[in-house]
């Protein structure tokens, strides 16, 4: 057992995969000599060499396209896109190539690649370095999407993503990179698609992922002071997502709030709400409520970004509203 920051847990998962499997390579901008903009790949090029931990030019379409070609040709590439906002430049490679190859080639081969990328605000990084775009990828058949909330999950989900025979987008919340947590020395493999109950409760269910898990837990702590016991579910995996665990919780609490850092409209929460309004309809004793960002770009100014980002108070208010 070691206490690691999330970024160190990512680094450890990458180092383990590189050591165990000679077909694993890393590619991305400044991931080698510089160790990555957030330090996620620090020391890996020294240990595994510049061919396996490859610094690329500033060419997102080329990076992800090359990852697709390498994955079709026997490697397991782990590509890093420095900020999730930059993925717009690589959409063809991810959406039209990686996601579809297994299907459109009749199952001849899959694309066992990973795309790691940080999302999220809170750093005054402005409209083009702060977005949470994960819902786009959840909407694409052929892709898987995970988003860890803890260092242990960042490690385990990245290992699972690298082991997966299909393309997986690993979304890391950059505001959580410095968060510390226990990571077991040899944790059991964590399958993609399993949520965890971050905090048990009987009165309402809060489903969250990424940074919102921590706001939800904070909200649950505040609600407990008023005798409201909210259960917090950390989705961990967004595509596929753990419908059974959410439905089971809803069947016990009969109230559902979904919290996300991303823009609320047309997001992950909308999908969960729609599914639970269908298969969980008989369990509901209140409206399903979503908490997410308003329909604006992420602003730069600290006070604007504070107003923009969801927080524990808004989640707690939503829980009270659905219980009303």
């Amino acid at each position: 057992m070691a206490e690691l920051r999330m970024v160190q847990a990512v680094n450890r998962a990458l180092a383990e995969a590189l050591a165990e499997d000679p077909t694993v390579i890393l590619l991305g901008e400044d991931i080698g000599a510089a160790g990555g903009p957030f330090g996620a790949t620090r020391g890996l090029q020294e240990k595994f060499g510049p061919d396996r931990v490859r610094d690329t030019p500033i060419s997102e379409a080329g990076i992800v396209g090359a990852a697709v070609g390498a994955a079709l040709s026997g490697l397991k590439p782990v590509a890093e896109i420095m900020f999730m906002d930059f993925i717009t430049l690589a959409m063809d490679a991810l959406v039209n190539q990686a996601a579809k190859a297994r299907f459109m080639f009749g199952g001849q081969r899959g694309v066992p690649m990973v795309l790691r990328t940080p999302h999220g605000g809170g750093l005054s990084a402005g409209p083009q370095h702060s977005q949470c775009l994960e819902a786009w990828f959840c909407h694409i058949p052929g892709l898987k999407v995970v988003c860890p909330a803890t260092p242990a999950d960042a490690h385990a989900l990245l290992r699972a993503a690298i082991a997966d025979p299909d393309p997986v987008v690993v979304v890391e919340n950059k505001a959580l990179y410095a968060m510390k947590g226990e990571v077991e020395d040899a944790p059991a493999p964590l399958p993609i698609g399993r949520a965890r109950i971050a905090r048990p409760g009987r009165d309402a269910t809060i489903v969250a992922y990424g940074a919102a898990v921590h706001w939800a837990t904070e909200a649950a702590t505040a609600l407990a002071q008023d005798g409201i016991e909210a259960e917090v579910i950390d989705l961990r995996s967004l595509q596929p997502w753990d419908e059974a665990t959410v439905l089971d919780s809803l069947s016990r609490t009969h109230h559902l709030v979904i919290a996300q850092e991303a823009v609320e409209a047309f997001g992950v929460g909308a999908e969960i709400a729609a599914r639970m309004a269908d298969i969980g309809f008989d369990e509901l004793d209140g409206p399903i409520l979503r908490v997410g960002a308003p329909f604006t770009p992420v602003p730069f100014a600290k006070e604007l970004e504070r107003a923009y980002r969801p927080d524990a108070a808004r989640i707690a208010a939503a829980v009270r509203r659905t219980l009303d």
Binding site: G65, V68, G69
Partner: peptide, 10 residues
Amino acid sequence: PPIALGAALA
């Protein structure tokens, strides 16, 4: 071409 680039890299 980027896919072939990746194959060459492999």
